[in-house]
Design a protein around this nucleic acid. Structure first.
Lengths: 270, 270
DNA sequence: GTCTATATATTGATAGAC
DNA sequence: GTCTATCAATATATAGAC
């Protein structure tokens, strides 16, 4: 098991340095200290190694939500968790953003899209949580700008071989986003956003995420979301809604959405 | 000559789709309608085709300055020119930012660094011209954020196959930068910037650019810059300074710097 | 599990006919 | 100028010995 880990680490370094396609299996094996043939005892092919790398990273990203403090609705605290992962996996980041590996492999492309979507969803919800539902028309623009800024700082770090403090950087970036948001008044968004963010949309988004990750209790979750939708419009029975939302709360992949559902319910109920 | 252009265009499309290393000479030749052997009548190697592509783009970038209106010191007007080029050459952009081609070829790496530096210089000077010398401590951060935002919007455009209006986008981005700059007061920059931007530094930067591009009148330009430096500190003879600056103004690669030199001289002279 | 040896395909590039 | 034929190198992946 140790050799496999070592292979992945060596491969990551080589991919980051020279790119995926220009790194040969032979080179990976040689630098790990085994023969070319031996490589295939651990991975069925080169792309499968890459796929495992993506999976590892994707899992790290999903685990960020665990560390989120739901009460303090500040962009900085969300970004902090994410940036720590980025910095820790900065070599992987470099591979992903400096060379787009084989478009030909469909599995890979799909995995990358999922990773991208996961991040995108997270960021979108950060904004809603921090600035409220009124930034809905601008949310697409804000997410794009945030992602661009984060990537560029990461790139700067890589190229200049500087180490960055996740806390300082997240605090800096979120303050700049504050500046942008404050200045947004009366501006027309550049990209079309939703005119307003209704609870129906939020529930729909949550369902999509549940579908994306094939969770064991998928059916139960979908039913729960539907029930919430029904109760919100019908009786608004607080006891039942509390129960339903509590069930959703267990699921970390939709944690951010659940917090918002609760928020909107209680605000709407006043 | 026409076949050569066609080869480059086909190659660009293939590079953008599948990446540089995963596009074979055979594929380029086949899609252009000639044989693999025929390819080598036009380019000595695959990397040489790529190098020519970079040169073409670099030239377009340098030509932007021509269209700048020096009197209207707005970030938007500068960005507009640049974004038009980006959008026009969006396939090239995709190649550059989605796959970093061979690190092994030194000529290529050098050309890419030059291109990056050129853009970086431009952006830095845009900020100085728009917001004045007092943003000096923040200029590195501002440039990074601007570049990140621009890249991300370009990426969004590519991935969603949407066309964007350069004027609208440049206007939007510059307004967001306004928001950031206005919010900057009392913040400590994240990356170290120059504490203040003196005219000596500006002249030094200008010299570096002159040295980077091997211009035919390099010696004359360097002498001129030195003379400006001398006169600024000594007699401040307006007639002679006017002459010297006028000579610099002809040179488009340092146009932005020249405008600023003139500005600082006249402000300092009051 | 890891090695050596090998199979097979594809790459970038060259030589020489037309 | 463009083709065909071919080179040498390298790639991923497999087979079978130990």
């Amino acid at each position: 098991m140790e050799t496999k880990q070592k292979l992945m680490q060596t491969a990551l370094q080589l991919f980051a340095d020279n790119g995926y396609s220009e790194t040969s299996v032979q080179e990976i094996a040689k630098q790990t200290g085994i023969s070319k043939g031996g490589f295939y005892s651990y991975f069925p092919s080169k792309i499968d190694l890459m796929l495992e790398m993506v999976d590892d990273y994707h899992q790290s990203i999903q685990n960020i939500t665990r560390e989120i403090d739901g009460t303090k609705a500040e962009l900085a605290s969300y970004l902090h968790g994410e940036l720590e992962i980025w910095i820790e996996h900065r070599l992987f980041f470099h591979v992903i953003f400096k060379e787009l590996p084989p478009k030909k492999d469909e599995t890979f492309t799909k995995k990358m899209e999922q990773l991208h979507d996961t991040l995108h969803y997270h960021h979108q919800e950060y904004f809603y949580l921090t600035y409220g539902q009124q930034i809905a028309p601008y949310v697409t623009d804000l997410v794009i700008m945030l992602e661009g800024i984060m990537k560029e700082y990461m790139m700067y770090m890589m190229l200049h071989d500087k180490q960055m403090d996740a806390r300082q950087l997240s605090s800096w970036i979120s303050r700049q986003m504050d500046g942008i948001v404050q200045n947004l008044a009366n501006q027309k968004p550049f990209l079309q956003g939703d005119e307003e963010r209704t609870i129906e949309q939020l529930l729909e988004d949550t369902k999509e995420i549940v579908l994306q990750y094939q969770l064991s209790n998928q059916q139960m979750l979908l039913r729960t979301i539907d029930e919430i939708n029904r109760h919100i419009h019908a009786d608004r029975d607080p006891f039942q809604l509390e129960l339903l939302i509590h069930y959703l709360k267990r699921e970390k992949v939709i944690e951010i959405q659940t917090i918002q559902i609760e928020k909107m319910w209680k605000q709407g109920g006043l």
